[in-house]
Design a protein around this nucleic acid. Sequence first.
DNA 1: CGTGGCTCCTGGCGGC
DNA 2: TGCCGCCAGGAGCCAC
Length: 280
Amino acid sequence: MKFFKGQGILSLTGFHILMPELPDVEQFRTYTESTSLHQKIKSVEVRSEDVLEEISASELRNFLEDEEFESTDRHGKYLFVKLSNSWLVMHFGMSGFLEYFKDPDDEPPHTRILIKFTNNFNLAYDCTRKLGRISTAESVQEYIKRKSLGPDALNIDYSQFKKILEGRRGMIKPALMNQHIIAGIGNIYSDETLFQSGIHPKTKVKKLDNEHLKNIHKKMQEILETAIKKQANTTQFPSTYIIPHREKGGKCPKCGTKLNKIKVSGRTAYYCPEHQTTST
DNA sequence: CGTGGCTCCTGGCGGC
DNA sequence: TGCCGCCAGGAGCCAC
């Protein structure tokens, strides 16, 4: 699938890299579904043990070899792949992606785990910066519980959303990005959500009224659904989105004002000073 | 409870 | 050109 190959190419040419937040992982999930199900795993190469979490290379090989991927699931930024009796869990850090290929020349450049199927195709887990993690779980629920992940950002309804945010003392952007509160939103989708909601990223949660929260919840889910429809390809996003303008000298796609770039909880936040005016 | 700082990594880029 | 420090979209840990 050229799409994934394109990620590296896009990043090299200065376009926006597709980062593994919820929509990207959903794309990896459907990609896995459409390429890798119901094929016997012949062998597994662990090229870097750095990405293994609570499992050794030989344990992972034993865990996967002679198994088949039966189905997939996703929770937040985690991809789950079902085997006969347990689950493989993939997290992509800041630079991870999957590539299904046959010709060795098509192997991506920073393959950390290579799964070889008996049909002679391969699934590569490529993670340049080695910040992603591969692990296993008894079930999706067991993993969610073990990692204390909040509800998935796409599934959470408003009453639940409101309940988890109410009473928080901190700022809205870090709250949205906190995987223990809501799973799936990272730095760029929190920027987009707050841009579309007209909320300054440093706004204290307790300063937001019911209408604000309702709007944030609605925009968050609309954005995630749109991004998934566009296969997380930012070049296909609506022209009113801030994501493609999150760069030095970027301008607001709605009014042309130069975007502000600030640090919020240690992360880079871009926002429009004209559109995101709630007091902090 | 929240936040800032540090850490895990690699690689692209800007500045000198 | 070469080198170096800075920066990046994730997230855990610890001190305050």
